[in-house]
Structure formats: C-alpha cells, structure tokens
C-alpha cells in the first residue's frame, strides 16, 4: 500500500482522535453486553450470555422481547410504506400538476415540518383518544407517518422535478393516463429516491421514542425503544442488560444501513442524469 502524504496522515490521526469517544462508547457497549462486570473498558467479570437472557425469558415482569420486536417491525415497516406511498403521490402532484393553492400547500407542508413532535403531543393525545386510537399501534403509526410526510414530500418533489418532462409528454400524447404514467414511468425512474426515503423513514420509525412512549401505555403494544427504557431503573440499573438489549435493538438498523447506504447517499442526487 503506498504511503499517504504526511499531510493526509496527520488528517487521519486527527479523524481517529475525534472518533475516539464514539468508538470507545461502542466498545463499552460490546464489552458490557458480553461480560458480567466491566470497569471502564476493562472486563473484570466472566464472559457469558447472562445479559442476553432476555432473549429466552421474560425479565422482571416485562413481556417477552419478541412482542416489542414484532411491534417495532410492524410499526417501522408500515410507517415506511405509508410515507413512501403518500409522499411520492403528493410529490408527483406538486411537481407535475397545476392546481389552486399549490404554492401555499408547499409552504404549509414545510411549516408542518418545523413543529417538533413533542410540541404537538397533547393535541395528538386528545385526537387519538377521540378516535379511539389511543394506546394502539395504528394510532402511533398514523401520527409518526404524518410527521414524516413533509420531509418525504419535499424530498420526492426534488426527484420528480429532475425527471425529463419530454418523456412524459410523449407518453401522454400516446394516450397513457396520468395514473399509468405515474405508476409505470415516473415511479421506476425515481426508485433511488423511494429507496432512500423508505430507508430514512424506516430508521426514523425504528428509533422513535417519544411518540410510542407517550401514546402507548399497554405493555403488549410496547415498541423496542419503550422496552429498552424500562431497563433504566431509578434505584438500580443493570447496565450489562441495558447494553445487551441496546445491541439487540441496534442489529436490524446496522443491517439495514449496510444494505441501504448506497441509496441513502443517492438522496443528494437526481433521478435522471443529463
């Protein structure tokens, strides 16, 4: 391997130094998850799967981990699907059709994005209660998906804006309906965008805490984030188990990131190069 110029080597050292806190955090997580006792970053206890017993038994009156895992998979899967479908349709309409109030609508969507979820939470609670959706997975899915929509719509609008209008015009002249045009021609061309948005929505839903923590109270409907939170005790925290649950919670995200990072980077590019 050719040696890097000294300037670059210095930069690498600087980057490594900056990453050290994050890396040591990850190292702590791995070590604490697998050893009985860890002092700083030095394991002092036995290596063993004790901290992972939540996988085969319900720990301390909590439901089995597979229930929140199933709920989290449903939650993030459905949120991502809804966000991708609704955003792409809305974005296509905004990008291609002229309708009254289009500019105002775009502005409004952006304003919605400015509200942090937590500032809306009381109003959301009352709405869900009225609809009978409080403490249900459906309720939180709807809330999360709608809060993700503004970003999705703007993102997808960018992708559709890049598509060549001539191609669509040609299709329309050939007698293709708007729906077919959207479904058969436009959507496949923005596939990188859809995948990127889907991955973002999935990751964001997977890590969501405040909404499920507030809007779900029954433990049968818990998501993984709420399940993990129950291990952080006021009087005593078993950090070994916190680390193990944290790692378990992170595995799907890491897998997804490895598979989807190509599309995530695409978010800054367009649909058709030209």
């Amino acid at each position: 391997m050719p040696l890097l110029p000294p300037r670059w080597r210095l930069l690498l050292v600087a980057i490594a130094a900056l990453s050290l806190p994050i890396l040591s955090g990850l190292a702590w997580l791995l070590l604490t998850g697998w050893f009985d006792q860890v002092h700083g970053l030095v394991p002092t206890g036995r290596l063993g799967p004790d901290n992972w017993r939540f996988l085969w038994e319900a720990v301390g009156g909590r439901p089995s981990v597979w229930i929140p895992l199933r709920n989290s998979l449903i939650f993030s899967g459905v949120v991502a699907t809804v966000v991708v479908l609704a955003s792409s349709m809305a974005a296509y309409a905004i990008s291609r059709l002229s309708f009254p109030g289009r500019a105002a609508y775009l502005g409004l969507v952006l304003v919605l994005h400015a509200f942090p979820a937590v500032s809306l939470i009381i109003a959301i609670f009352f709405i869900l209660r009225r609809l009978g959706l409080f403490d249900t997975l459906t309720g939180v899915i709807l809330v999360k998906a709608s809060l993700e929509l503004p970003l999705g719509i703007w993102l997808m609008k960018g992708f559709f804006d890049y598509l060549s209008w001539e191609m669509e015009m040609a299709a329309l002249v050939d007698g293709v309906s708007r729906w077919t045009l959207f479904w058969r021609i436009a959507l496949p061309m923005v596939r990188p965008g859809l995948l990127a948005l889907g991955t973002f929505a999935l990751l964001s839903a997977w890590g969501e805490f405040i909404l499920p923590f507030t809007l779900i109270v029954s433990n049968q409907n818990w998501l993984m984030s709420a399940y993990l939170q129950t291990f952080l005790g006021e009087a005593f925290t078993d950090f070994g188990m916190v680390a193990a649950v944290g790692l378990f919670y992170a595995v799907p995200v890491i897998v997804l990131f490895l598979l989807g990072q190509r599309y995530l980077l695409n978010i800054y590019g367009g649909g058709v190069k030209g």
Binding site: G60, R62, P63, F125, F134, V217, S218, N219, T230, G233
Partner: peptide
C-alpha cells in the same frame, strides 16, 4: 408489568391510561 424506571414515568403512564 412491574415498573422499575421511576415514579414519574409510571404515574404519567397510569394517568394517560385513566384519561384514555
């Protein structure tokens, strides 16, 4: 369930359930 987090979070959950 048996809550080991803290009273604040438990009571918040109970109140939400009562109100819900």
């Amino acid at each position: 369930f048996f809550d080991t987090t803290n009273w604040d979070s438990f009571l918040r959950r109970v109140l939400l359930a009562f109100q819900g």
